[in-house]
Design a protein around this nucleic acid. Structure first.
Lengths: 151, 151
DNA sequence: AAATTTATGTCAATGTATTGATTGTTTTTC
DNA sequence: GAAAAACAATCAATACATTGACATAAATTT
């Protein structure tokens, strides 16, 4: 069998992840942005992603498959929120960037995301948040190491 | 905007949830059991679920929609791992129970789950696990409260 | 007894998630 | 210059995830 404590931990992780997907989408439903699209736009909104990110970079960063990311990008591209630019230096790479419209949308949803964070973490101290993030990071790294299909 | 610490926390939660779905399925791929099916079988394997669980109970417990649960149950039912029994006391309710085959399968995958837990949590102390579970529980409860569509 | 509520199921539309296979392009290596 | 490796797109099959709508049956309320 397995120990009860670890089982509880993983059950709560699973349950909380389900809630995040559902309630996260509700927080951005006014802009018709899903939790997954939010994560992609968030990744592209970082300073370090100023010049765009390749699809592979996004896969690594978000821990998702190429085919999955591709679908999310298609839906974002159809709405003119991102573009797939070709890199003149290496034309195999597509550099995914936000469009003007994507940047504008991000500034619109950022406060909604902030409100969501505040409400979801309302009884968490700064120390709690740091410790929690650290645990998530550690567990995530362990599982990433275990992934047989990681490149 | 939003604060960087909360953003990191939610990003890690999202990333870790993606890894769980992927690596969890890999851990049980020899028995062709997905992470979702595992969560349902796990729920039904608890002592408190000895007499079965209703679909509504499963929805609440796993934080998933009825339609979604229904699909997972259909797939488990096709493989004779669970049955939908009617309760003579209240014939609206379907009491979901594991079959003999389902119980046998669970005893087969339980050690695989144990190995998965051990490896994923290998550098976590007992105190870490307790604190981590507590954080997940708290965040999950907050998001559950925020859910507009909860019954 | 009639109306309402509750529990479940199913269909539909949409979006996410996986692996595997195939195709094409470009860059690197030889 | 040709072969090999890397990157990306796409198709297929399967499974999971949401909401909304509609149907059925049974229990509860009025």
């Amino acid at each position: 069998m397995f120990d009860d404590l670890s089982n509880r931990l993983f059950f709560r992780l699973y349950q909380t992840a389900n809630s995040l997907q559902k309630v996260g989408a509700q927080a951005l439903e006014s802009e018709q942005i899903t939790t997954q699209q939010w994560s992609v736009l968030g990744a592209l909104s970082r300073d370090t992603a100023k010049d765009g990110m390749s699809v592979s970079d996004l896969c690594d960063y978000l821990r998702l498959s190429r085919q999955n990311i591709s679908g999310v990008l298609n839906r974002l591209e159809e709405r003119d929120l991102i573009v797939r630019n070709t890199n003149p230096k290496d034309q195999r790479l597509r550099y995914i960037c936000r469009t003007e419209k994507g940047i504008k949308l991000w500034s619109k949803i950022a406060p909604l995301i902030g409100d969501f964070y505040d409400e979801a973490l309302k009884n968490f101290s700064t120390d709690d948040r740091i410790a929690f993030t650290h645990f998530l990071n550690k567990l995530g790294e362990n599982m990433h190491t275990m992934d047989k299909n990681k490149k």
